[in-house]
Design a protein around this nucleic acid. Structure first.
Lengths: 206, 206, 206, 206
DNA sequence: AATGAATGAGAATTCATTCAT
DNA sequence: AATGAATGAATTCTCATTCAT
């Protein structure tokens, strides 16, 4: 809804308007995803955002586009921060860096209702989501895993792809079954990954 | 109403027919579940079975009833065979028994498209499914896990419930992502479960 | 299915069997009609009777046939007892006889959940029901009404048909709205039938 | 799209369109209700209106909402005109005012196929309909009846609620049975309501 | 004659997506 | 660009009626 007196542009909405709408949409979608999962009705997101449904479709033609966009920021954080942090790699042995990152990844998934599930959805329109994760995060995890294996801390025969999916999977059901301790299971997996040096392993577990 | 000694059935359509139909229904449902997941439309199962939709509702009032029935046989096998097999417990140390059962459990889940997913569904009508699994299988796993921990082979601080859900989770996505090796991830988890004994871990993996 | 030891007839069930079934059906239907109205599912009546649904259809091809049969006894009572009772007509003036019969008719309707409603149903298969009532009871009411009018107790310009439907109508809703006093309304109608305030009434009618 | 000063609507489809559709829906529903009763399938109303089923649900979430809306105008007329008309109360004695209103009420019901019936429906979604009538019209009738009783024209022991339901009931079946004269029966009821020959009437009631 | 399993049309309801304004 | 009303396919579930045994 343009405010004629303040906007002299004859063409209507300007770039700022559009960007503002997109932001509102993303915030609304994030809120709704938390509340009702990533399969929530489009109308609900529209209502939350205060914008029309048509606007959603204009900005994000498929649901996956929206989901990807919603989590892009957090994915970016996971993708960029860790591997470039020099202090981390200085102080932490590679295995510690791997553990830390996996935990952050898990925390991210666990706090997004339905996201872990959606990562595997073969529903039309969700391939993008999986691809996004693979493209952005797999290289990061791969680097960490390779470094850890190179240091002799972890087995060299485990692929980052499998590990990423496995961790994602272990996060499923956290909301549905409050009694399920995903964190501990992930730790089990990580421990299983290590190369048998007892001193390294025993005191890590929580 | 006379009860001829040879035919206890008082009704027209005889028992054999009815059982045959129920079998057809279960087979059809199994096939459709593989093809389209356990959320497949009832109509599709009816079409696959060659029977009417009403017949499905007669036999299995809720979807979960059908799902449970479809997998009952396999669940029964998992629930009964293992813990009572004396030769197993004689030859295998407790940890081996645990591994074997977990692998069988995983094989079962992996071959049923959508089953692992359905186990977590909070959709109406699927609670039964989760309950069925918990009620039937959790005691078995619990016994195996307790025995293994008692033998000092595995950590005593891991609950069977978490382990069951975790294994179930790790099986998710096997069909969707052919490149995902659930088996290896499950082995990682099992290894992580052991008490960090270097000799135990190295040669188990496949 | 014959009872071999007690029934030597080679042709199967004898007349007594069939009649017994019909009676069971009628009793069951009466019970279900009270409980769930005359639109109750056929299956429910079958279950109540302990007989099969097919048997119901054999005995009563349409639902109205069943409804008519269920109430036949009571209709018979209304149709035959009153007009032939000599003591009644001796002690009661004609108007009193009319009132008494109308009350009995109303009591009959009120105690059959859904019957008053069904009398008007234009649903396929219910014409019979209306016809049955008209054919059996209208002559009775007509006789009573004519006698009462002849004695100068009631208006001569009211037809028995209208009165019968009106009384039937006034019985509707007794179960649904416990606060509705059908009895009093019927009394109002009967009172209105008597010649009372000439100035108010005569010129209004259309 | 800037908001022209003449159109305050922020939305695409403008208000006039929406209102036109709602009107089309109401007209279609009224027509279908006459033809097939208020239980007619939603799809039929949609077809009659030329609009989609979803549109009906958008405008009228429950069937009762639609029914209420269809008859709202007439209910409004009955609810507001009469009691505030000063000339009526000046020229008519209270009993005449009562008669007039009851006739108007009956005319309304009689011309709406299935409405009188629906008023009593205990089907889910029809409570509102009954409530609407009671809430809107009962106070009006109560005022008229009380005034008439106060003037000594009618019996003081009859409640407006019973009278309203009774009149409604007497209107049932007008379309189904063309030979049924609801009008006359209502007049009978009203006449029975008047205080005339005390000896005949008072002691009969139970 | 009796049975009740099977059938499938019918009705309600939801929601992704389009498109006139 | 934005809107949100309109659409109607898709899905679930019920129950009258048929018919093989």
């Amino acid at each position: 809804m343009p405010t004629p007196s303040t906007d002299p542009s004859p063409a209507g909405r300007n770039r700022a308007d559009v960007r503002r709408n997109e932001r509102a949409l993303l915030d609304a979608a994030a809120a709704v995803f938390v509340r009702a999962g990533v399969h929530a009705p489009v109308r609900e997101i529209a209502a939350e955002s205060g914008l029309g449904m048509g606007t959603i479709y204009r900005h994000f033609p498929t649901r996956a586009d929206l989901v990807v966009a919603v989590f892009k920021h957090q994915v970016d954080a996971l993708a960029t921060t860790t591997p470039t942090d020099p202090t981390d790699s200085a102080t932490d042995p590679p295995y510690q860096a791997l553990r830390t990152w996996v935990h952050r990844f898990a925390d991210f998934l666990v706090t997004k209702h339905g996201l872990a599930e959606a990562m595997h959805s073969d529903q039309a329109g969700f391939e993008n989501l999986h691809n996004e994760f693979v493209e952005r995060l797999l290289p990061v995890l791969d680097r960490l895993l390779t470094a850890s294996a190179a240091a002799g801390s972890t087995r060299p025969d485990v692929r980052a792809y499998d590990l990423m999916l496995a961790v994602g999977n272990l996060c499923i059901g956290v909301e549905t079954f409050p009694d399920y301790h995903a964190r501990q299971m992930i730790d089990l997996l990580l421990t299983g990954l290590t190369r048998t040096d007892p001193t390294t392993q025993e005191h890590e577990e929580h």
